[in-house]
Design a protein around this nucleic acid. Structure first.
Lengths: 189, 189
DNA sequence: CGCGACGTTGATTTGCCTCAACGATTGTGG
DNA sequence: CCACAATCGTTGAGGCAAATCAACGTCGCG
């Protein structure tokens, strides 16, 4: 049951048996049904969630009622409203499930305690945050320097499986275009 | 001389005298003249740079020769091509000076050693990366949900001093619009 | 089976870009 | 300290990528 998340930790740090026991003791397992919310904008993001199965989406709901997707979190990814979690303030983003999903969660205080008891996790989450930063930075420059068509082609090449698993309108939202325009791009080829 | 960077460390971690001595011993002080490059795309980013004075810009030079600014680094900010530095691979971004600038640098291996000798720095750079992630995420959703005019208004409100210190064309590039269009927005008011 | 969400298509509109020309400002060598 | 060049910001005409709006087929789910 815990293999996926332990394998994720092992990508960046090596835990001995005692350390493994500590982290397992604070993990909370949770199931989220398709369309149910894990976090609602306005609430405080009290946990960081590792997706063991399924798919979450992190998105902003703007004043016009339009959804703007920040990112998807599939198996082996982490989902969180970073700003809300780290400063324990109300969230801007909403997180909900695109499929029936299972996550492991670590609460805010539990994570702070974990940093004390197993300092290696400072390293783990440092690397995680750095990788996240790189991905976000790429997305910004991609949006600045590429057309919608180029971005869609790159997305398909980078995530060939996701194109089949996620609704078109969500891909459009992620790419920053309308579903209609994405439909037209697809027709062109 | 070292106060600015020590104050920056102190925002997130408390260093004793021995630890302070260690980090000071690996810092390299460097001056960059206006318009000179600190990092060129294609080279490997071998150091992380803390800006003590002046201003750097991190930008992508695309195939058409257009510049797309990822971010500015003023006093008390860090400048780096994250992907290049952390994996020691060729950089996508170029970093150059918009003003005569002074930085403190930490080399890649020195930083890895520092993590070993003073593990608190794992925590410091974890928090730094998290904050960077939040800023990038905000920028993406801002671009997805707001018009150029709204983004410009927010930029002015958020960085009132910068508007006077940076050339308009650089602000335009940062906002993801042309200098001509920014000029038109300014006229409207 | 029937309803609601989804993807598609086409007509029209618009936010922003491109190109070109022209003042204003800044910087630099004489 | 001036003269001149280079860079920068502005303005306007015209164009295009992508949005909006509306209508319609279809598919999956309850």
């Amino acid at each position: 049951m815990f293999e996926p998340i332990l394998a994720n930790f092992a990508k960046h740090i090596a835990l001995d048996q005692a350390e493994t026991a500590i982290v397992l003791s604070i993990l909370k397992h949770r199931k989220i049904k398709k369309k149910d919310a894990l976090l609602r904008a306005g609430d405080v993001c009290r946990s960081i969630s590792f997706v063991a199965k399924g798919c979450l989406r992190v998105y902003l709901l703007d004043a016009q009622g339009d959804e703007h997707i920040s990112h998807f979190a599939f198996e082996d990814w982490w989902a969180i409203d970073t700003a809300s979690f780290y400063s324990q303030t109300p969230a801007f983003y909403t997180i909900d499930a695109l499929e029936d999903t299972e996550v492991f969660q670590i609460g805010y205080q539990d994570l702070e305690d974990l940093y004390e008891r197993v300092p290696k996790f400072e390293r783990f989450f440092r690397i995680l945050a750095q990788n996240g930063y790189v991905i976000q930075q790429r997305r910004i420059t991609s949006r600045l320097s590429e057309s919608a068509e180029e971005r869609y082609e790159k997305f398909k090449k980078l995530h060939p499986k996701l194109s089949r698993r996620i609704a078109q309108k969500h891909i459009a939202s992620f790419l920053g275009i309308t579903p209609e325009f994405l439909s037209m791009l697809r027709k062109k080829k």
